[in-house]
Simulated scan of single mutants.
Amino acid sequence: MSARVVITAGASGIGLAMARAFAARGDRVWVTDVDAGAVAAVPEGIRASHVDAADEAQMAAFFAEVGAAWGGLDVLCANAGIKGPTAAIEDMDLAEWHGCLAVNLDGAMLAAKYATPFLKAQGAGVMLFTSSTSGLYGTPFRAPYVAAKWAVIGLMKTVAMELGPFGIRANAICPGSVNGPRIDRVIAAEAEAKGMTAEAVRAGYAGGTALGRLSDAEDIAAMAVFLASDGARMVSGQAITVDGFTINPDPKV
């Protein structure tokens, strides 16, 4: 039986890789994204809506639409996130701090809030939160992103405790550095902040893992599909890394 899967920030990057992976196994997939252009380009067979994950009114309206169209939900991937500012803590702008937490943390909470009634009603379901290895180790010059991703893990563990009695599992996936345009932007900003070349920063990211390479979005998607499957029926409340085993979180500092 196919699952009904909602993925926030699912029109590009990791979210789109998740959408494709779930769709490939025959699931019904509905993604949201704040990027209207990316929403319009989502592959055929995947539903897509233009939604700001940090806007409660938009999220409430979206989940009401999901309920009307599908009558329920089986899997939530709370994936919305932005890199936030790259700056030393003494130079941190409070508005930029709040903006980063709004998407990365408030967006995750709102997705969980509005998905929960569907999952409770059927006595089953899976919530997956996209955190980061930055939410386990910390990353210099990325304070708001790190703070949000640590908080997402705490949110996930609390949700797993609250909803476990209703047959609902919750886990967090913690990607390391993932190949794609987003990590390119992160590396460029970090290189500028540290006075290094982008090539040196990228080599440092890869060299900080036991496998010596960056992940691909498909690696994260494969973990999401597994955690949503019956094969993971006793896996809940866990923060699971997909990072090639980070052995030095900031090898070039």
Rank of each mutant, 00 (worst) to 15 (best):
S2D: 02
S2R: 10
A3S: 02
R4W: 11
V5I: 11
T8M: 02
A11T: 02
A11V: 03
G13Y: 03
G15C: 01
A17W: 02
M18D: 13
F22Q: 04
F22K: 01
A24L: 11
R28M: 06
W30V: 15
V31D: 05
V31L: 07
T32N: 10
T32C: 03
D33E: 01
A36W: 09
A36G: 13
V42W: 11
G45H: 07
G45T: 06
R47Y: 11
A48W: 08
V51S: 12
D52S: 15
A54K: 05
D55M: 13
A60P: 11
F62Q: 15
A64Q: 15
V66N: 10
A69N: 10
W70I: 10
V75I: 12
G84N: 07
G84V: 09
P85A: 15
A87V: 05
D91H: 10
M92I: 12
D93S: 04
G99V: 06
C100M: 13
D106H: 07
G107K: 06
G107L: 05
A108C: 04
A111K: 10
P117D: 13
A121E: 04
G123D: 03
V126N: 04
V126M: 01
L128M: 02
S134L: 08
L136P: 13
R142Y: 00
V146K: 14
A147S: 14
A147L: 09
A151E: 10
M156I: 04
K157Q: 15
V159P: 00
V159A: 15
V159Y: 02
M161P: 00
E162R: 07
G164V: 12
P165S: 14
G167L: 10
G167K: 13
R169H: 01
R169I: 01
I173C: 08
G176S: 01
G176L: 04
G180L: 05
R182H: 01
D184F: 00
D184W: 04
V186R: 00
V186F: 00
I187T: 14
A193Y: 05
M196I: 00
A198P: 09
E199I: 05
E199V: 02
A200R: 05
G208M: 02
A210W: 09
L211S: 13
L211R: 12
D216R: 03
I220A: 05
L227K: 01
L227S: 09
G231Y: 00
M234Q: 02
G237M: 10
Q238R: 08
I240K: 03
V242G: 02
G244P: 04
